[in-house]
Nucleic acid binder design. Structure first.
Lengths: 332, 332
DNA sequence: GCCGTTTGTGTAATCGTGTGCACAATCCAT
DNA sequence: ATGGATTGTGCACACGATTACACAAACGGC
């Protein structure tokens, strides 16, 4: 039974075994289809016996619908995206959609990768990564006409976007830090080019401006713990800042460790450190980070909502806006 | 140009445009194929102009080769697997293979999910998850005849496995802890049923047995920080142990925090805590965990090696064994 | 008993490529 | 110049399913 290198049985072969035509086999597997009750039961029984399942590749070719979804992400391990990826994958699976991961990290050729995925006629594309230009994504995928859900707003009928607004939350956080007496702020970016990074920085910059302040220094990391640690040492030592707003939580943890270990400073007493994302790890007892967090569930709900709208060809706003909220810890 | 809902152009249409037959179009895209140099160049130019790319779904149907790889994982966010997932995805992408993620976490119906993926005629299956029985995987995928790479050894010509041996490393770690004077050991499992968990526990149990010791207590978590924290409180309080071997690094960090915060104990002075996996986060300054670690790169090299062997239909041992090594931190 | 409707099934075309076979054209050696 | 080998291209079929259409059988109302 098991272990055999049995070739997969085809619908035509099963048809012969069940004494029907291959069309009838197909109908037996289509829920609402004109077929006799008895015939269907018999076919399903024989199918089970021989381990037959319709070939999804052939079905996709005929259907013009692959039920594949491309997820364009920066990295898989990265906690900042991981929780959302996890949620989304579950939601897709529940809808019988299979996710194909496109990982843009490092120097992999993102464009070639996206072109490869587009040849698989994916039904939808969800772009989490800020490493890829939305215009590139549209150009590559528009021939296959999937919907593209993305962080980055782009006026295009093929793109639905999710706008994130953290300005209020940033304002609350800055308010608290300023009240605590901090004066010299630094922003630690995750990249020096991404769209989302600039947006996040602007939220805080505006909150500072409102109070007659501005960033005294800016550094660039790569969203990693190590880069957070290294850049924070420089910021604290060279620029004498007493508050660091980080591009994500992981760098914030690195920065906090740098403050503690290298310079013997404490939070939030000596310096304030703020993360962004609101990953689960940030709430761990050993981290207890103050962070500008996004409701991951709401975010993924929005993604799924946009996908469904497009699936059902419902016209509607192609953009959903979500707001962030502060999560208070012991670092600011 | 962009934004148009242009339907994807087919090889037959492109053939008309280029004044050749569709067979010639196909040959233009097959690297080693009898076709005139000039013809190919002309076709590629026209193809670029119209944005033509061969349809991978149709190609797969014809080829009997989908270039899709199913990755069966517990979760995406889970750091213990994430690093390996990340590495593997990169290696696959470099080979023009696209990964389909099957996420087994929670109560999703793993079997149905695997059946769904198998209908897509995946070329390979890599099982990272210990939540799924290898026999189930074989039964579901054997009809499509992919190779299955798995942790769990199973004598079956369709399964290649990677055996992990951490007994020596466990021995070194126990040696150090015993020498430090610890006497009462506990094992904190990640699950109460998985194959890999039992294996890991045995490494340490044997090292203890060699010294006339054994586990005084055993607890069961779910690989999460919270469960590590909660179970450690019980173990330390109720069972008065002074050394906890954890099923993974994340639980170890939780246990360490519990020891520190709830009971005011320090490591490695008061109690010893050991993790497993060797994830990057374990080496962060704030964690500095002692852990039994596996070389992730070597692991993924092995996976890729097995995949390639099968791809090239090279016969060879279907099993590769890797050994672990201790990574010393300040918790044991 | 007869005709219109519903139900169930088979036939054949279709989805978009890849490739064996056939055949014309070109090339090279003698 | 000629025969054989090589090169380049088209035709037609296969891959495995779905589905419009046709048609036979069953059914129901009068």
């Amino acid at each position: 039974m098991s272990g055999m290198n049995k070739r997969r049985i085809t619908s035509k072969e099963l048809a012969k075994l069940a004494g029907v035509s291959s069309a009838t086999i197909s109908r037996a597997f289509s829920p609402d289809s004109r077929i006799g009750r008895a015939t269907r039961d018999r076919i399903l029984a024989v199918a089970r016996e021989y381990g037959y399942q319709p070939n999804a590749i052939a079905r996709s070719l005929n259907n013009q619908r692959s039920r594949l979804v491309a997820l364009v992400v920066n990295a898989i391990g990265n906690p900042c995206e991981a929780e959302e990826q996890q949620l989304l994958v579950h939601r897709l699976q529940a809808r019988q959609l299979l996710p194909i991961i496109l990982c843009c990290a490092d120097h992999s050729d993102r464009l070639q990768l996206m072109r490869l995925a587009s040849t698989y006629q994916v039904d939808h594309v969800v772009v989490f990564s800020d490493m890829v230009s939305m215009q590139d994504a549209v150009d590559i995928f528009h021939t296959t006409k999937p919907i593209i859900v993305s962080f980055e707003p782009l006026e295009n009928e093929n793109v639905s976007s999710i706008r994130i607004d953290g300005s209020e939350a940033a304002d609350e956080i800055i308010e608290k830090i300023v009240r605590d007496g901090k004066k010299r702020f630094a922003y630690l970016s995750g990249t020096n080019s991404s769209w989302i990074d600039k947006l996040r920085r602007r939220w805080f910059a505006e909150a500072l401006a409102k109070r007659g302040l501005s960033f005294e220094a800016q550094a660039f990391g790569d969203y990693s713990y190590d880069s957070g640690f290294k850049e924070a040492v420089l910021l604290l030592h060279r620029d004498k800042v007493d508050a660091i707003i980080c591009g994500n939580d992981v760098m914030a943890i690195g920065a906090r460790d740098a403050a503690r270990r290298v310079l013997g400073k404490s939070t939030p007493g000596d310096i304030a450190i703020v993360g962004q994302d609101g990953i689960a790890m940030a709430a761990w007892d050993c981290n207890d980070l103050t962070t500008l967090s996004l409701d991951h569930t709401a975010f993924i709900d929005a993604v799924v909502e946009l996908i469904e709208r497009h699936d059902a060809e419902i016209e509607g706003p192609h953009s959903i806006t979500l707001t962030c909220s502060p999560r208070w810890g012991s670092t600011a």
